[in-house]
Nucleic acid binder design. Sequence first.
DNA 1: GGTTGCATTGCAACTCGTTGCATAGTACGG
DNA 2: CCGTACTATGCAACGAGTTGCAATGCAACC
Lengths: 176, 176
Amino acid sequence: MALEHAILVSLAERSASGYDLARRFDASIGHFWKASHQQIYKVLGRMESDKLVESHLVAQDGRPDKKVYAITTEGRSELTSWLVTPTPVEALRSEFAVKLRALHLSDRDAVLADVRRRREQHAAQLESYESSAAHYYPHPDRLDDDELGPWLVLRGGIIAEQAGLAWCDEILKELS
Amino acid sequence: MALEHAILVSLAERSASGYDLARRFDASIGHFWKASHQQIYKVLGRMESDKLVESHLVAQDGRPDKKVYAITTEGRSELTSWLVTPTPVEALRSEFAVKLRALHLSDRDAVLADVRRRREQHAAQLESYESSAAHYYPHPDRLDDDELGPWLVLRGGIIAEQAGLAWCDEILKELS
DNA sequence: GGTTGCATTGCAACTCGTTGCATAGTACGG
DNA sequence: CCGTACTATGCAACGAGTTGCAATGCAACC
């Protein structure tokens, strides 16, 4: 139930509608935890019956009404207790690694093309993270208290993409 | 349906029972694609009705009978066509990143302890990969054709663990 | 005037994977 | 002789996530 907690984190920062949350997940948090709007609406519904969040309707002009969700006291205590429980290291799960392992059964050129594609995707993602970093945190040596977390997460993304890139480069070297 | 393909890869190398497969997944392939025995039995059953694999019973002495699965021609062609289709880069999904993002809502010492724990796990995994590499591939500059894939996969694991380790170290530095 | 796109919420059906349980024979240590 | 551990297979229930579809109403573009 990690989406539940990701939503609590997001709502603890600011109340939002399901639609807003879906957009936030497309942007910041979503770099490390994707969620579709269907999934978000479903989980929000369950969280409301569990009293972790509460909602009220907000009329808007020129747009459909929206249902703004806020975290409850119970939600906050659930969140803080989750925050201090140790996190199991998630197993890495890579379809690409399975394919690579079967290299001797496969078509070398197809694999090469695939690796090149992946390399470009990692490079693009890395660039996007780095420009986010430069834009939002121009002075990483002087961060506010509430900036440190997001900054470290961004650093994690950068490190992961660099690793992905390095792996692709190593594969390309071996295959050429 | 990636487990299906991982099983096909494994059976293409050698026929095996569900139990054997579960152990293989605990060892080599499983570093990058975990699967429980329940899951494996279930998928094997479906794959048999889909004619991707076929089984026959083998009696053993002192042990229960086993059902040995072999890949079929149809399974092989499914496998080769899967091998040449491009692989989407899997989104990274990290519960830990979500927690880290909420650092300002959290208990600094609890986070520190968690990061230290994760650091140890990455270090242990890295060491295990490196000793596998040293043991199975003592001469990485001279690899057989069928060794290159597994070697590159292992390299991917090493690179990923090093990245995980580097991230932990960076977090520890910032939090101290 | 028609099409496209955005904002907003949601349902239904499905796949994938996890957890817990059941069964049964053998081997081994205390 | 008893408990534990290994080999071997499987079912049932559940949770998480994906895919596809649907509705409505406004704005902007051609």
